[in-house]
Amino acid sequence: MHSAVIVQAKRTPIGKMNGMLRSWEAHQLAAPILQVLGSEVEGILDEVILGNVVGPGGNVARVAALEAGLPMSITGITLDRQCSAGLEAIRMACYFIQGGAGKCYIAGGVESTSTSPLPKRARFSPEKIGDPDMGVAAEYVAEKYGITKMEQDEYAQISFNRSWSAYDNGQFKQEIIPVAEKDHDEEFLRRRNIEALLKRAKPIFIKETGTVTAVNSCGINDGACAVVVMDEVLAKQHRYQPVLRFVDSSVSGVHPNFPGISPVQAIQSLLLKNSLTIADIDLFEINEAFASKIVACSQQLSIPLDKLNVSGGALTMGHPYGASGAILVTRLFYEVQRKQNIKYVVAAVGSGGGIGLAMLFEVIR
């Protein structure tokens, strides 16, 4: 079986809904990423695979590839697995390579919530089962697993501090391709007093007894991200430097009322299949849609916080749905190059409808 490796990863800055990227449609946001990555694999690229959740419909990946000026022979696939769509795109590319369907893909995701034509979200589940909005579902997770507001706020403070530290250290500059002369995430235009905001914030989804607030939840955002996935033999032939080697993945389904806990089962299954434990994984990236989700997952899996989202995440920088899974992999791509003695890393997302997706990578030195 062929081995799939990641040789490059880039993203746009992340903008707030109706913020600095408000006039950029989904295909326009993805195009600069495809243009840069496509130029690096000219002549060997097979296809573009992008996740997209609330976009205009149609094949955004193909439209973005054409917008980027890629050859018309380069086709596109657009998929929707809600918040894990960008991670699923990378997973699909890895399996295509393993199975011999192709040798080089650009895979990731894009979201322009600012230009979305959808008046509301799509259905996650039939009403007879329960179809809560993600914020309400985050409350259900907090209640079921006994996650207090204090625990959520403490994690949100940690994430905020880590994000700003990474920004101040210039870590995100490696990841970002500027768009519209914007070269950093909109959140970093102004440093908020997060401690004061956490203290003042009131529950917004279940007002009487809730614990989930606007401050310990992610924002709604615009952005794009993609990686280059390549057959390892081809990468070496063309003198690309592989950084992450795809090992395996796992998908889990849980009750749609508790989507935030779905990464737990996916990660457990993934590790069991590969005879690994939590202790064997050096870094975890789990999408920070809600602090209740991260606290619950870290407690259920016993993940030490010094291994989890070490440069912050969506609670500070935002959650452009279709792109977020790819952003996790991009973060790992650069984190492992800054650290020593890293062997295995995991990226995981819990999606609307109760679907968890986890991917395992081995670091190549």
Rank of each mutant, 00 (worst) to 15 (best):
H2D: 14
V5G: 03
K10H: 08
R11S: 01
I14C: 05
G15L: 08
K16H: 13
N18M: 13
G19D: 09
L29G: 14
A30W: 06
A31R: 10
Q35V: 06
S39K: 15
S39R: 14
E40D: 13
L45Y: 04
L45M: 06
D46Y: 04
V48M: 07
G58F: 10
A61T: 01
E67N: 13
P71T: 12
S73P: 02
G76F: 09
D80T: 14
Q82G: 05
S84D: 08
L87C: 05
E88W: 06
I90Q: 03
R91L: 14
F96Q: 15
C104L: 09
I106H: 01
I106E: 00
I106P: 03
S114V: 03
P117Y: 07
S125A: 15
E127S: 13
I129V: 15
D131I: 02
P132E: 11
M134I: 03
G146C: 06
G146L: 10
T148V: 03
K149N: 10
Y155L: 08
Q157T: 01
F160N: 13
F160V: 00
A166N: 00
A166Q: 00
A166G: 12
Y167P: 00
Q171R: 14
F172K: 03
I176R: 05
I176G: 01
P178F: 06
V179I: 11
D185N: 02
R191M: 10
R192N: 09
N193I: 01
I194K: 02
E195T: 13
A196D: 15
L197S: 09
K199D: 12
K202L: 09
A214V: 03
C218L: 01
G223Q: 01
G223H: 04
C225F: 00
C225Y: 00
A235D: 00
Q237T: 11
V243L: 04
V243I: 14
F246P: 07
D248S: 13
D248G: 07
S250R: 10
V251R: 12
S252G: 08
H255Q: 13
P259S: 10
G260C: 11
P263C: 11
I267A: 09
L270M: 13
L272S: 15
L283Y: 13
F284C: 08
E285M: 07
N287D: 09
S292M: 08
I294W: 07
V295D: 10
C297W: 06
S298R: 14
S298W: 06
I303N: 07
I303L: 08
N309A: 08
S311K: 15
A314P: 04
L315M: 07
P320K: 08
P320S: 07
A323M: 12
K339N: 10
Y344S: 06
V345Q: 09
V346E: 04
A348H: 05
S351T: 13
I355A: 10
A358V: 07
L360W: 05
V363D: 02
